[in-house]
Design a protein around this nucleic acid. Structure first.
Lengths: 290, 290
DNA sequence: CCATATACCTAACTTAGGTCAGGTATTTTG
DNA sequence: CAAAATACCTGACCTAAGTTAGGTATATGG
């Protein structure tokens, strides 16, 4: 345990030292970090001044000053919001967009260099994902998403891919009871995606069947985000929404190849019941009364 | 590849955001980060002003000001060095030592909290080690060490442990030709330890046998530090020192269970030769003329 | 419709961190 | 032994970042 603490602290020191270097990639273009961060946030689609402030964790007065500075340099323009004339919306000018692209190139080059120096980039990436997830544990957000959208697609592809490895005889979506997307959209159900810094790291579907009954489907957590209690959070959120939708009975099916899932259900008030569908990939069935 | 870059950049953002929190553990005691870092560096045995400057990456004038500030607060005292009256040596006062201990406790608690929140701390630690090694790639130092000292012991224990897993029939040091420590001390030989931020992450022994012949023994690199070319650096350093010691012929033995080592030797100018000892764990033998 | 809240702004100030020019005491070197 | 180099110091100055106090325009709720 003592050794463990030493190792964590070594990591912290390494990271603190390295961040100096990361920041300098921004300073490298002769602009203070604050302004550079604003350009990047705007470039990534955060155009409301309030959203910018929130994202960058900056006070209103400092934000104003930073924006005036960038305006003076001809990199951004602010216009009054059409919805609410008190609000302002910022966008990059042509010169600002060019700056943004330059920063993007710098960041990408730097990221590439980090990988290039290592003999096993896949291992390094997996380790970085894991560390990033743990560091960002408190910043993992769970939001409703379109079950046919990009984020959902990303999660589901990863989910099917994983099942095909873990199930003894593989997994073929077309043979499973694929939930129709429309059943995972309000008011019948919902589809939730967990994101860590915009990267999807988990999902769950609530598939409404009418008569106060719904099924939990497609519970998945990215390998890098496991161990931080994310599946519990996803399930809790799905349950909360189920109650909102006046659903009285939740059901789900699972497979013995996924013992962690079964454990979670048993620990969170689910009761094992008899088979209620003919999905060839399911061998355990659970129910929870809300 | 595109996905890889995204993941690295996500890691960088997570780390940048987290470092703010790491720093605040220092700010939490009402002292600016700079002063806190000085207290910690002194507490960890860096007492020369020049060493402090180098370690913290700070200019002479700023260092002076920080030290004067800490002196005014009664936390440190500076005395003129006995070896060189231009130099100064800093040490913590009683109050300073108490502050240092408080920072240590804070850091340890924080490290513990980071691990406590995770279901598989060992995996997390391994990932953190790997990331720290990659970030600290350029800061891995190789230094001569006492082959009977703590650092050497740490490395050798890890080395034997690893061999016992990798060799088909295990590994028992007492049956191997254990190099006598005295043979790995100047002027006959040398023992090198690689450290990343003080944590030993690799070693190699040069065991002098007289008549211009020496053997390379105990080449080991910690799993977390693999892939960054450390074994090459260790071997190059050992070779450089061998030349300094007027050694003309280097030899080594290895085992087929360690294919990466054999690969390294073949790539760096070693020639396979006939068996030159009766070590039961050796099945390949190499030589290099300097 | 008016009091209050909200969204953003400006000006003045503070702190941390860093640079620059120059100074003193000591050691090293030709 | 004198000139040059070294180690540290001081004071003046700068920038980035953050805070405080107050101001203006717009939206909103009783």
């Amino acid at each position: 345990m003592d050794d463990a603490i030493k190792r964590v602290r070594r990591f912290n020191r390494a990271v603190t030292a390295a961040v100096g270097a990361l920041d300098e990639s921004f300073l490298g273009r002769g602009r203070p970090l604050g302004s550079a961060r604003v350009i990047n946030a705007i470039g990534h689609g955060r155009t409301d001044v309030a959203v910018l402030r929130e994202y960058l964790g900056v006070e209103t007065s400092l934000m104003s000053r930073l924006l005036r500075g960038l305006e003076d340099d001809g990199l951004v323009e602010t216009v009054v919001s059409t919805q609410d004339a008190r609000r302002r919306v910022v966008h990059l000018t042509k010169a600002g967009a060019a700056e943004f692209r330059a920063y993007e190139r710098l960041s990408n080059t730097q990221a590439k260099a980090m990988l290039a120096g290592h003999a096993k980039p896949e291992e390094l990436l997996a380790a970085m994902d894991l560390v990033a997830s743990v560091l960002g544990r408190d910043r993992v957000t769970i939001e409703e998403a379109d079950p046919r959208g990009d984020a959902a697609r990303y999660c589901l592809d990863a989910y099917y891919e994983e099942l095909s490895h873990r199930f003894e005889h593989g997994f073929d979506v077309s043979r499973s009871r694929d939930p129709v997307a429309a059943q995972m959209v309000r008011p019948r159900g919902v589809f939730l995606v967990a994101r860590s810094d915009d990267l999807p790291v988990g999902c769950v579907g609530l598939k409404g069947g009418g008569q106060g009954v719904a099924e939990i489907k497609r519970l998945w957590v990215a390998p890098s985000a496991r161990g931080i209690g994310l599946s519990k959070r996803l399930m809790a959120d799905a349950e909360r929404i189920a109650r909102e939708l006046s659903i009285k009975t939740l059901r789900l099916d699972t497979n013995r190849a996924l013992p962690e899932a079964k454990q979670l259900y048993l620990k969170t008030g689910w009761k094992e019941i008899d088979r209620f569908n003919d999905d060839p990939y399911a061998d355990s069935f659970f129910e929870k009364r809300l």
